[in-house]
């Protein structure tokens, strides 16, 4: 078919369409759905007894802030990924945020290991982390899929990767409020490992064709 003929056919088929909200507006909707769910999970699981003291620690506030920043940036990037006019650098912002968050946790782990003569490096199995993050991330992830269903038409793997990272980072943001990790190494390996694992699973799901929802 000639391109000019295609244009004529497309023009004849121009039914009205509902304009999609901007990435920022979609991100705001996702946060509106996600934040109450995270709050409910923390209340249901029971906040840590030492939470008030932790909230006064700059170290704890910094990691929570970085987790929240990764959540927001990843969600925004997920909604940008499907838009053809959004620049590619926006899709790499979550990677930068995640690396800064990881670097800060690594720095804290190093400092604490020196201060505690290596006690912060103790690592043992913590099988609660993976299901706890998975359960906490379930509703944010479902909300993300729901909001992405009309917008992830381009670069769907990026959209799924950023979307899963946002949901996992949101869960990781809530997790320290109700679950205490024994050492910093536990946080690094189990909690951040879970975030990385779920992000990879999200990207794999997109590669397997689950992006046609």
């Amino acid at each position: 078919m000639k391109t000019e003929d295609l244009i004529a056919r497309l023009a004849r088929d121009a039914a009205p369409v509902r304009r999609l909200p901007s990435p920022g507006a979609l991100m705001a909707r996702w946060l509106l759905l996600t934040l109450p769910v995270l709050a409910a999970v923390v209340l249901m699981m029971g906040p840590r007894p030492d939470l008030a003291g932790l909230l006064a620690q700059p170290r704890f506030l910094l990691t929570e802030g970085l987790a929240a920043a990764t959540t927001v940036i990843s969600a925004y990037a997920a909604f940008c990924a499907g838009r053809p006019d959004q620049p590619t650098w926006k899709l790499f912002m979550p990677v930068a945020a995640f690396l800064i968050w990881l670097a800060e946790l690594g720095r804290q782990c190093f400092v604490l290991s020196v201060q505690t003569n290596g006690a912060a490096l103790v690592l043992h199995a913590d099988w609660l982390c993976v299901p706890a993050i998975a359960m906490t991330a379930l509703v944010p992830a479902a909300a993300m899929v729901w909001l992405l269903r009309h917008s992830a038409k381009f670069r769907p793997t990026h959209a799924c990767l950023c979307g899963t990272m946002a949901a996992a980072a949101a869960a990781e943001c809530a997790l320290p409020l109700f679950h205490a990790a024994d050492t910093m190494m536990m946080v690094l390996v189990w909690q951040m490992g879970s975030v990385a694992l779920f992000t990879m699973l999200g990207a794999m799901a997109a590669r397997l064709g689950l992006n046609t929802l």
Binding site: A14, P84, S151, K153
Partner: peptide, 8 residues
């Protein structure tokens, strides 16, 4: 692609 995604 433009036709299918003009809502974006």
């Amino acid at each position: 692609a433009l036709h299918q995604n003009r809502h974006l």
